[in-house]
Every structure is written in C-alpha cells, then in structure tokens.
Design a protein around this nucleic acid. Structure first.
Lengths: 360, 360
DNA sequence: CTGAAAGCGCTTACAG
DNA sequence: CTGAAAGCGCTTACAG
C-alpha cells in the first residue's frame, strides 16, 4: 500500500501559470515573461502563450506576484483635507495606480495630528515605505522634517513650495491664477476682487501672486481693499464677498482662490440682488464639485487631482523599489498642466463700470 | 569544493514568522496561531510569542497570508454616484474593511453603463467574486438580475427595496423622514413643503412615505401642491423651491430629500429675501458635505455611509469565503441606525403662520 | 530565447 | 496544545 496522498487544498481556484504553460507547451517561466511583457520572447512563443491565457481565462494572482517578486511596497496616504470630494478624486487616482503597481495603500486620517513624531513612529511600525502628502499636509514643515529624518520618501501634492528632499507633483498655481485674472481683464473688468486662500497652504500665495502679476501687466493699479483673506471655507468666502460688495466702489468681478469661496460669493451677490454674471462675475479655482453643483456653474481652473495622485504614487513606488535610479532633483518635481474651464459665472463687465478703475 | 550556494533574494525584508518563532522558542505554526488569535494556545506561550513580535517589530505579510490562506477574495465596487463626497466616505469604509479582511477591492466607474451583460462578463473575466452596489446602482433591476444570474453575491447599499437574493445594508429611510417631518411639526409648522428625490432610487419613495405618514399622524391634510419632484441635484432643488415659494400660501418649512436640494432651497429663500430659519425652515437628508458647507448649516439626517460600506464589504467577504453558513434571509438584510442632526436651518414656525394649514 | 530549481512568507491539513 | 511537512502561485537567479 502506498501512503495516502495529502488532501489538496480546498476550493476551486482559477488557472495558474502552470496551467497556461501546459496549454501553450512552454515553461511557466516563459508564461511569466509574457505576463510581464518582458522582451526576449519570440513572437511566435508569445502568441501561443497569449492564446492559452485567453483560452483559459487566466488572471495573475497578485498575492503570489508580490510575494515572489519581493516587491512589497507600502505607501501611506496621510490626509487632513476637509474636502471629501478632493479626497475622493485623489483616492481614485492613487488607488488605481497602487493596484496597477501592486503597492499597498494605507489611508490614514490625520485631522487631529497631535504629535508628528508619534505619527512617524506608527508609520515605521506599520512598515510604511513612503508617504503621500496632499494639501494641506504637504505644507506642514514639522511633519515634513520628521518624515525626512525617518528616511521616508515623501511626495508633496499641490504644494507651492516643494522641499528639496521630497518628490512633488504640482500645477503652476501662479500661472493658473494669472490666466484666470487675465481672462477677467479681457472681459473688460477693471476692479477685480480677490479672495485669498488659507495662509497655511503655500499655493495660496502663488495664486495671489498670479492675480497681482496679471493686474500689473495690464497696467491696473492694485487696490488693497479689493483683496480679502479667506481660508478656503464657504464661510470665509461669505465674509470676504460681503466686505467686497460693501465697498463704496465694489468690484465688477470676484476671483476666489477656490470654488467653495466662489460659491459663497455667488450667494452673497444673490442676497444683494445682483445677478451673476450680469452684475457680477465670479470665478473659482479647483473645479471641485461645488463649481458645477450651484447655479450658475462656476468658471474655474481644473486641477487634475486624480492624475496628480497617480503620478505621485508612481513616483514613490519607483523610489521605494529603487528603479528610479539616482534621484535627480529635476525629475523629482513634476508639474502638470491645469485647464481653464469657462462656464456660466463670468461675463463682460457692465458697460458703465468699464471705465471705473482705468488709469486714464 | 562545495557548490556555491544560491544568492539570497535581494532587499532587506522585515522579520518573518520564522524569526519570531526562533526568538520565542516555538514553531512558526504557533506564531501563526497567535497572529490569527486562534484559541488553543497556552497563555504563557501566547505571551512569549507576543513579546517576540513586539521585540522584532514583526508585521505579517499580507501577500503571503492570502497566498497561503487561499483566501483570495476580490470584490468589485461599482459606482455611478454623482456625489464624490458620498463615494469618498463609502470608499474609506470599504477600503478599511477590505484591508482588514484582506480582500482586494476593485473600484469601477459605471457612469455610462451601456450593457449590463458586457459588464458582468468583464467582472467574471477579472475573477471578481462579489459586487458592492451603492446607490443608484443598487436599484438597477436589470443589473441586479444580470449579476444574480452570473452567480455573484451582491450587496445593495441604501436601497429602498432589497432583493431576495442579495445582501443589503440600509437605514430606515421611512422612519428617518418621519422623524424629520415630526420635528418640523413639533416646531409648529403646518405647511411643510417636500422635495422628492430621484424616482430611479427606491429610497426616494420611502422618504416621501415617512413625510406623508408624519403629516397624517398629526392630523394635517396632505396638500399635493406642497410636494415637488426633484432628482437629488441642486438644480432640481432650485426649481422645486422656487415653485413652492411661489405658492399663494407658501410653506413655512421645506424638507428636501437630500442636502444638495436643501441647499438650493436656502439659496432660493435668500433670493426671495427670506431669512433661514427665521422666515423659512429648511431640512435636508444625508449629512453630506453641502449640509455643513453653506450657511446656515442644514439640519439633516445622518446616514452612516462609511459604516454601511464596512458592513456590506464584510458581508460579501463572508459570503465568498463561505464562512457565512447557510445564508439566512433575515441576516442578509442589515438595517443601521440613522441620526437626527439638528443644526441652524430650522426653527419655530412664524407665529402668524401657525394657524394656516390647520384643520380646525 | 528558454527552462529547471529554489524560494517568497505564510497557512492548511495532519499527526502527535 | 504544539509542530513537521507540504503547498499557495508566482518570480528571481542562474544555466544553457
């Protein structure tokens, strides 16, 4: 009598590389090469394998791949962004890339970030290999330093001031704000109000800089009273717009540093019995959900959040896996294109107002 | 000369069960038992192992676990929800549970769902084991049937009409709407406008039913003119509120079936020079970002979206892994508690209006 | 260009 | 209650 063979593991499982290899008449190794689209496989062989894959409906097992590949890569996404919409879009991009690259994404809410050192310790304990930092955390100097000291690769997203030691994926906030302001000027506006973003985000200053440059390039005298502080919340937009419209010479257009504040400006205009855009033009920034939710829909700047998340995730995965080569400074900071999104909230300046702020 | 030993695999890797076992003086098997908190391990042994885990900073390798455990479980999250905020919260819950249970989550955007059959085929091809259906897809009969026919376990989230063959995680929409309407009645409102939700979501009908029941329980005669159709968009809320306030006898309160429409009602009120809540009370549903973004913040019903996502994900994982036992009908439909969130958008009815719609 | 062998880190299925 | 052996499905590191 022979020894009873061990019972095979339970459950119907899908086909494996071995099955495909058998079906194609090659070795599992070759199947692996085809799956990973490595070069050095004869076209004929490749085709046979591909046919077998289709025939069997083979799908690689990610768990096995990462185990064997030793590609364990765990990236933490630290977020403290009040905007669920931003987070959602960011997550979709990051998640897609993570699954493609087979990296494990750890999502951590840092809203009440007490002690950065404590956080870093927890990350290390959890074997996190790198950290994704969307705004506003991307601008937290203390956190940045603590992470850097711990030797963790970092990607700052949408920061206005990339750290030397970090990766960064941004858009050109200054240029975008410049373009938007230029658009308003082109529409004949001369008194353009500006609602600034939160001062703890470096991008806020860049947006203001773009606004100011467009003004001065057009020969318009900047007017301090037209610039109000906001903090990216609707509430702060309400206050800022209220102040702007209470001015003896109110602006004919308001450019808010994000869409929530722009929406607030629209609401205030309505309460003042001003039609948007007939009596007041309003523009935002970010192309968040709010921009298309309210009426009229807000002209804004589209920030490719999902794409930025994808790129940042890929950057970190490469850094962790050492495929990135010597991390050249220039390649570490990627700038993506923004998009001007003209919608229904801005229009030509009212005729009577056209000569108001002019230097003539 | 002995044969040169094979070069070990590259990269510093963390400690493994073997390391922990060595350090604790037990077998890897015992370490595994402790990690998985199985019973049948002597307390003393357990403590030794736990100490070793801490000392070495051991963290289990999820890839290895799922490979060895044969627990491959792939759950698809099909979404077509226009609200990024909802999706974001849902994702957070689902993701957390997925990582805890070691299931792979596939997130798929089905906004332009052409052919359900085609989609099902793709899911099967991708070896998806089960499907998570948040609204409005949870109510898509055709999709539901196609999925069921393919033998895929399904979890409907926030549906108003759970299918017999599916798992479902819901709140009691009828009771919630009843509570909200009751609150308004308690505040002295007698003419309460209602903005209905999209008809393609079964929860919409339940919310209306709750409103109607509260009215009739209070002895108030329902008035068709006070009920307007909406489709959950801000735009539709604008139209509905406009119609409601144009009534010869306008309502003193508006209960919208979601927060976006409630926000629209607030905007319309403001354009009509009505103060909210002084001149008009407005309530919403869902506790979405919009509810706390605008001013005044909207009284609403909190739906525990993240928790619902967690539960649904867990339900499916159990179903796939067959730990669920015989799927008893009753346990397949879970109803979670909603929460009434009183905020700043509702108040007592204006004194003069109190006697308006009364039957007396 | 292709393949045989070993190993990734854990768990299952037994046997004590 | 504990452990030795085999195996999960793939890839690395070689050798031809």
């Amino acid at each position: 009598m022979t020894t009873t063979p061990r019972k095979p593991r339970s459950g119907k499982r899908g086909p494996t590389v071995a099955d495909v290899a058998r079906c194609a008449g090659v070795s599992p190794m070759t199947v692996s090469r085809v799956i990973n689209s490595e070069p050095n496989v004869m076209p004929a062989t490749r085709e046979k394998v591909e046919a077998a894959i289709v025939a069997l409906g083979y799908v690689p097992n990610p768990a096995a791949r990462s185990l064997a590949g030793g590609q364990q890569c765990r990236i933490a996404l630290l977020h403290a962004n009040p905007s669920a919409a931003y987070l959602s879009e960011f997550l979709m991009g990051s998640l897609a890339q993570a699954s493609k690259l087979d990296v494990q994404l750890i999502v951590e809410d840092c809203d009440l970030l007490a002690d950065p050192a404590e956080l870093v310790r927890r990350l290390i304990d959890h074997r996190v290999d790198a950290v994704l930092l969307p705004p506003p955390l991307c601008d937290d100097e203390v956190l940045l330093k603590a992470l850097h000291l711990a030797g963790l690769p970092i990607a700052q997203i949408a920061t206005g001031r990339p750290a030397e030691f970090a990766y960064a994926v941004t858009i050109d906030d200054e240029a975008a704000a410049h373009a938007m302001t230029g658009r308003l000027i082109g529409l004949g506006h001369r008194r353009i109000g500006f609602v600034a973003g939160a001062t703890n985000q470096t991008a806020s200053a860049l947006r203001f800089a773009g606004y100011a440059r467009a003004l001065s390039e057009a020969g318009l005298t900047p007017d301090d009273r037209l610039v109000r502080e906001g903090d990216f919340t609707y509430r702060s937009g309400l206050v800022a717009a209220e102040a702007l419209l209470a001015l003896p010479e109110p602006p004919t257009a308001i450019f808010a540093s994000n869409d929530d504040m722009a929406a607030a400006a629209v609401a205030v205009a309505h309460r003042h019995r001003l039609e948007v855009p007939r009596d007041l033009s309003v523009c935002g920034f970010d192309n968040s959900a709010m921009a298309t939710t309210i009426w009229p829909e807000i002209t804004t700047i589209d920030q490719p959040v999902a794409e930025m998340a994808r790129r940042a995730t890929a950057l970190l995965a490469e850094a962790v896996r050492g495929r990135a080569g010597p991390p050249a400074f220039v390649a570490r900071h990627i700038q993506l294109a923004f998009k001007m999104l003209p919608r229904a909230s801005d229009a030509c300046a009212p005729p009577c107002a056209q000569n108001h702020g002019l230097g003539t």
